[in-house]
């Protein structure tokens, strides 16, 4: 099942889960807040918008837009997402899993897969903004801090995903 088309087999999901749990505990103990990804992307989008329009941040970007691109590098969550990217790269490199490819099901073309990735990503982006967080900021962080709203997010996110899963099943055959 966990064939990786080359490279080492994946590690235990339970051990990885404990590792991520320890990352969360460290974040609470050291910083007083958890992790997040969609917020960092919002900071990037907000900074692009305000720099491009050369206007003060509108209500949509308040609390996210940095005064300039250099200032983005002092945004805690932006630096953390850079870390996530480098950490993923390091792990894949060590396991021989770096691969230039577009993952998709048999019989699915690259352009179709990219269209689904772009479209799904855009829908997810809207959902994450509405919910004030994604799998990291709501599910992992809010979930482990027992926030009611975060557990509502987890419940409806998985319910919707399972509801739609049969429609995209052939994308992965």
């Amino acid at each position: 099942m966990s064939s990786t088309s080359g490279g080492a087999a994946y590690g235990s999901p339970y051990l990885a889960g404990v590792g991520i749990g320890l990352v969360l505990i460290a974040a609470y103990v050291v910083m007083g807040h958890g992790v997040g990804v969609s917020g960092a992307l919002t900071s990037v989008a907000g900074t692009v918008t305000t720099v491009a329009t050369n206007a003060p941040a509108s209500a949509a970007w308040r609390g996210y837009a940095a005064p300039g691109f250099a200032a983005l590098l002092s945004d805690w969550f932006v630096v953390e997402v850079i870390g996530i990217t480098l950490g993923g790269l390091a792990s894949a490199a060590l396991a021989g899993r770096l691969r230039r490819e577009t993952e998709r099901g048999r019989g699915v073309g690259v352009s179709r897969r990219v269209a689904f990735a772009l479209g799904g990503g855009a829908i997810m982006g809207i959902g994450a903004r509405l919910a004030k967080g994604c799998t990291s900021g709501q599910a992992l962080t809010g979930g482990s801090l027992l926030s009611v709203g975060s557990w509502i997010f987890i419940a409806t996110a998985f319910a919707a995903a399972y509801l739609i899963a049969p429609l995209v099943r052939r994308e992965w055959r």
């Binding site: 990804v37 479209g119 799998t135 996110a157 995903a161 994308e171």
Partner: peptide, 26 residues
């Protein structure tokens, strides 16, 4: 927001954090 997110998640096949990891690994 959770429902919209979940719909996008299953279509995209990756969530925001895992998409960063996927992109970083090529």
């Amino acid at each position: 927001g959770g429902a919209v997110f979940g719909a996008g998640f299953v279509v995209a096949g990756l969530c925001p954090g895992t998409a960063c990891v996927s992109a970083a690994t090529g």
